[in-house]
Amino acid sequence: MSYIEFLTTYGPRLMTGTLITIALTVLAGLLAVAIAFAAALMKLSPSMVVRGIATTYIEIFRGTSLLVQLYWIFFVLPLFGITLEKFTAGYITVGMNLGAYGAELVRGAIKSVPRGQWEAALALNMSPAKRMIRIILPQAIVVMLPPWGNLFIELLKGTALVSLIAVADLMFQAKQINGSTFLSAQSFGTALIIYYIVARFGITPSMRWLERRSLRMLGRG
């Protein structure tokens, strides 16, 4: 079977898988950003309990493997009466995992804003929430965007693991096609190239665009 024939036969299935992968990436990405900001702000809280909760969350999710977490949430959580559909379990696990990494990025970026900015905001009698939202975060976001670009690529790669709980993503389709045709180079190779295209021509340019926009908002564009 020539490669062209391979593509015309199995291309549609790989495309369906790609769409699932993209959906997983977007949903997990949104969740990761929300968790990262929440956990980072909690870690900066004056209350030890709140800080403790955030630290425990971050350390557990960064200290164990994504695959271990996925199996745990999919196979063990039902024993506690929480059963998630596999697609949902998939993006939630990936989002929670990458959110823990993102929390450290957000915290680092917030801390990198010079002390003088906090003091100036305080001197203008802004409330703590106003200080954070109006003054600190806009400057922190510019700092954290480039590493978030890398994190989203990690996230895209992480979604490939959900194929192991039988979510029909790109990785899953490649494995299925390999299983029925034994054309490993074609099936896995094509999937590798698609992942690369999504990362290189999807995620990277969108992040660059966001970086430029945020710089312009700070008048540094």
Binding site: I153, L156, K157, F182, A185, F188, A191, Y195, Y196
Partner: peptide, 23 residues
């Protein structure tokens, strides 16, 4: 380097494991 970094490890593992026997 960019290619290796932006594609999933699990897929690379499958690729290396299964492509050898094909040849």
């Amino acid at each position: 380097v960019e290619f290796i970094r932006s594609t999933p490890l699990v897929l690379q593992i499958f690729f290396i494991f299964y492509v050898g026997p094909q040849f």
